[in-house]
Design a binder for these strands. Structure first.
Lengths: 221, 221
DNA sequence: CTAAACTTTACGGATTTCCGTAAGGCGGTA
DNA sequence: TACCGCCTTACGGAAATCCGTAAAGTTTAG
């Protein structure tokens, strides 16, 4: 069994529920809980540098903003930072996201080892995911179908990146710049322009205001 | 202390976290967990009819849809059904909602006894809420300000008219036209422009995309 | 009543969005 | 191979946005 496990989850009740279950159902020796991404990262970094690294991270994706400005604001930020440091630590994501494209990208781009979709069986699934991970296999909640992502009204992670940044007030020029900085291709302003234009058709939106309002209401952003 | 407590919360990890904490920190004798509103209601109804009613319900507001069609789909549905049956049971809501208007209506229209906003301290708050409720007092998470906070960020019907039309893809010119047609004053494009600009300051938005995304997320549009 | 403060409106300029055209790249296929 | 369809990118023009200035109207306080 894993010796050192870290749980990153901002809701205290959820965090505690996971920690208790892992203590009871698995024989994990050392379980650490963190409510902020920055704290989680620091703890992993220190342990890594001390030669006593964590074996497993269980993390949420979405973290509420607190009163203080934080460097790592989401589970993705956290995982990205950790993977630069340590490619051995196993990572299981435990989140409400159920978009297959999004989850696929976590496995492909962030090298996570398991994905559990929060729900009425997610604690049991988490235990299963950990057992699979122990044997170097991956785990995905059964209700997620990574293959048949219903093309129709699905957004891939690239679309999501653009839309999220637009909804945070960035211009297409700024988003293009950001993509170049993060070495994500394609990155030209023109391509972003065209992509958004195609999303107008796809979702029946008149313009960007309309599109953002629709997608936020659908919970996609 | 309360003798019979029911927890209605669809996320297994969260549910378990709450149950464990109440067992450890309070001396509750009988804690029951339910993942579906319908099940929670039935259990409360049966206990009530048997003359051994529950003393306390801790419930979430939002419940994921499952494969089967359910009668009670939200915490509000559940509370509404329970209050028709039993006005004595104490109800504490534990949810991510942080809209003061929404929470106010839970106290006023649904006669709840406490409101805890999910977050990094919500388990501790829940324990406090239960202790307050025991003494027939109400509890609300300190970060929620039922009186003031929302005055500042309130939208009048004129603002709402503009924002709703913007979010439906109309331009300021078109909205100006529409106002003139409906004989609502002021109606000039310039005034609309200025009003929206002031809303940027009020809500800390960079531009209209940002503003619309924020307001839809706040449930104001 | 009057001065100060705010609102409505117009206008103009820099920037951005929206959309059409067009050139070049890349993969599939007959 | 040559052709087709799709994606990326550049460019340009019309329309829209964002924001500053300014004049005229309205409200508020003393």
């Amino acid at each position: 069994m894993f010796k050192k496990i870290l749980i990153a989850e901002d809701f205290q009740d959820t965090n505690k529920g996971i920690a208790n279950t892992l203590e009871n159902k698995l024989q994990a020796e050392h379980i650490q809980e963190e409510l902020y991404c920055d704290n989680a990262f620091n703890r992993i970094k220190v342990a890594h540098n001390d030669g006593e690294p964590f074996d497993l991270l269980v993390t949420d994706l979405s973290f509420q903003e607190g009163p203080v400005e934080r460097r790592l604001k989401s589970g993705k930020d956290l995982i990205g930072a950790i993977r630069k440091l340590d490619s051995n630590i196993k990572i299981i994501v435990n989140s409400m996201v159920d978009n297959p494209m999004e989850i696929n990208s976590l496995f492909k781009d962030y090298k996570i080892n398991g994905y559990v979709c929060k729900g009425r069986n997610s604690l049991n699934e988490l235990v299963m995911a950990i057992q699979e991970t122990l044997q170097n296999r991956t785990y995905v909640s059964p209700q997620i179908n990574l293959n048949t992502s219903n093309q129709v009204l699905e957004l891939d992670s690239y679309d999501l990146f653009i839309l999220q940044n637009l909804s945070e007030g960035l211009t297409k020029k700024e988003i293009s710049q950001k993509l170049k900085e993060e070495k994500i291709s394609p990155s030209s302003e023109s391509t972003i322009d065209k992509k958004v234009g195609r999303l107008f058709d796809k979702f029946g939106a008149k313009n960007t205001h309309h599109l953002i309002a629709k997608l936020v209401k659908l919970g996609k952003i």
